[in-house]
């Protein structure tokens, strides 16, 4: 049973990674767009008279942006591609549930997105001499794992809408920038108006990012970090539970109505 599950995970990840590697759009999502946003941040910082940009937000934030954009577009495009090529029906009809397939694919997409973050860290360290000395590395690692889990939970939640209706892909893709704006990928949340900060509380990555920022600044305050980690984990689990519930609903809907190919 466990062996079969890992075989499924391995096969799915293998195919998914090949698709990602051979898709040039990945380059745009993981590298080019974050680079452009970071460059704008750096030039604006210089225009404002700053000697150096804030590397955590301007450069490493760009990497987080790349991970998020990669997840939104790859996960939506996975379902859209299945619909286009006629393989969505085959997956829905197979004994392995679509939810499980999507969970593995989204996991692969999230992990693949790490290259964007790794590139941003490398750029910060090699080009701008960013140093991790003094940073709470263990805390940063926990925060990063929670960012990944948060991204994954949102990814599998959103995937249901794409199975539900082909028109939802534009709505889901549209979420790319609003979530990036609200979660403060490239600036601290205190910059936002209070009402926007309040809305951002529903996203697990917002809390995990806050904790990552604290850890990179050298904070070891477990009370503050623990609260942010707890909220990130709790909200991500909530997204995961909603995704499971929606998965069942959507699965029933497309099987009962038989309208998978027409919706």
């Amino acid at each position: 049973m466990i062996k079969r599950f890992f075989r499924l995970v391995w096969r799915q990840m293998n195919v998914q990674l090949k698709i990602r590697i051979f898709n040039q759009y990945t380059v745009l999502l993981f590298f080019l767009q974050p680079l452009v946003f970071s460059a704008v941040g750096m030039i604006l910082a210089r225009a404002a008279g700053n000697l150096a940009p804030d590397l955590v937000y301007t450069v490493i934030g760009g990497g987080i942006m790349g991970m998020w954009s990669g997840l939104v577009f790859t996960s939506t495009w996975d379902i859209t591609r299945d619909r286009l090529y006629g393989t969505l029906e085959l997956i829905v009809g197979s004994p392995t549930s679509l939810g499980k397939v999507e969970a593995i694919r989204t996991f692969t997409n999230v992990m693949a997105g790490l290259v964007s973050l790794a590139a941003a860290f490398l750029a910060a360290m090699l080009i701008f001499n960013y140093s991790l000395a003094g940073a709470n590395l263990a805390g940063a690692l926990v925060s990063l794992l929670l960012i990944l889990f948060g991204l994954w939970s949102i990814g599998i939640f959103l995937a249901n809408f794409l199975v539900w209706s082909r028109l939802s892909d534009q709505m889901v893709e549209f979420l790319e920038l609003p979530v990036a704006v609200l979660c403060g990928f490239m600036y601290p949340l205190r910059i936002l108006p209070v009402w926007m900060q309040d809305i951002s509380m529903i996203f697990p990555i917002r809390w995990a990012l806050g904790a990552l920022d604290e850890c990179l600044s050298g904070s070891h305050d477990l009370a503050v970090l623990g609260l942010q980690w707890g909220l990130a984990l709790g909200i991500a689990l909530l997204f995961w539970a909603m995704a499971r519930w929606l998965d069942g609903k959507v699965h029933d809907l497309v099987r009962i109505s038989g309208e998978l190919n027409s919706i």
Partner: peptide
């Protein structure tokens, strides 16, 4: 996004 990046930059 760019407005807030600009605001953060000063």
């Amino acid at each position: 996004m760019f407005m807030f990046i600009g605001k953060f930059a000063g």
